[in-house]
Design a protein around this nucleic acid. Sequence first.
DNA 1: TATTGTTATACTCTATAACTATA
DNA 2: TATAGTTATAGAGTATAACAATA
Lengths: 146, 146
Amino acid sequence: MARTARLFVDLVRVETRLWNAVDARLQAEHGLRLGQYDLLTVIAGRPGCRVLDLVHEVAITVGAASKAVDRLEAAGWCRRVANPADGRSSFLELTPAGERILSGARPVYEEEIERWTSRLLPPGALEELATSLRTIRAALEAEQRS
Amino acid sequence: MARTARLFVDLVRVETRLWNAVDARLQAEHGLRLGQYDLLTVIAGRPGCRVLDLVHEVAITVGAASKAVDRLEAAGWCRRVANPADGRSSFLELTPAGERILSGARPVYEEEIERWTSRLLPPGALEELATSLRTIRAALEAEQRS
DNA sequence: TATTGTTATACTCTATAACTATA
DNA sequence: TATAGTTATAGAGTATAACAATA
């Protein structure tokens, strides 16, 4: 197999298996899915976050994002509040329960990721992995914004 | 955000966006989805491939794999042939049409991946990225086999 | 007219489990 | 009894597109 294909397949397999490993622990120990953890983190880190911001960050469709927010609201972890500047959209924000579940889940999340990254690679390789991924991500997002 | 969390988020975002970019081109130019391309590649590269081999390689459930193979068969790209050594399972193999679509799609697949990897990173960083991903993948698979 | 978001439909995937056939 | 796979069900996710409300 060509080098380039192998790199991509390894990237996909690593992402899938790492996602599954983190997801399993979050679900078992805190009752939330990794996809929900991801969305809550985006909302927490972006004051005035709207549904469309989730769409661009996570790369899902508007319909999927709207329904995902419905489920987060139903779980009591986030709410939509009126956007005074634009009646078409709402601001998303975490509820106190949302803050709590995020704080409680974060150590498990980070511990599981570290197990397969920092503890597995020498510091230099880890640093270069982070840099390369950031470079590729920036290029993909620049393209997909245009 | 902690370094470790950022690394994982970048990994997930890169995988998603790169997957979507390749998937869009394969679908537009060759009429097959990247998930199907992935399965066909596994089948092609593993003589005597069974449904359970797909399950382990791609990390999906047996039911999902069985139905995915149904769809590949319906498209005329693969077939189940009797396994003389074990009547419970079938061997999966590509049809001539399956070989053809894989050969036709491969240049587009590789070109799109190279665009976001080899053409974006210096050779040393590319090499180290490949090595790191392979290391993490091997560790995850060792764990998940046990 | 364009943008933001919701909703409906259809399809895929998942988990779970019942089931068949074979080892 | 265990393994390999198929099938059924229900639930969640997705894409697509029609739609409503607002800019």
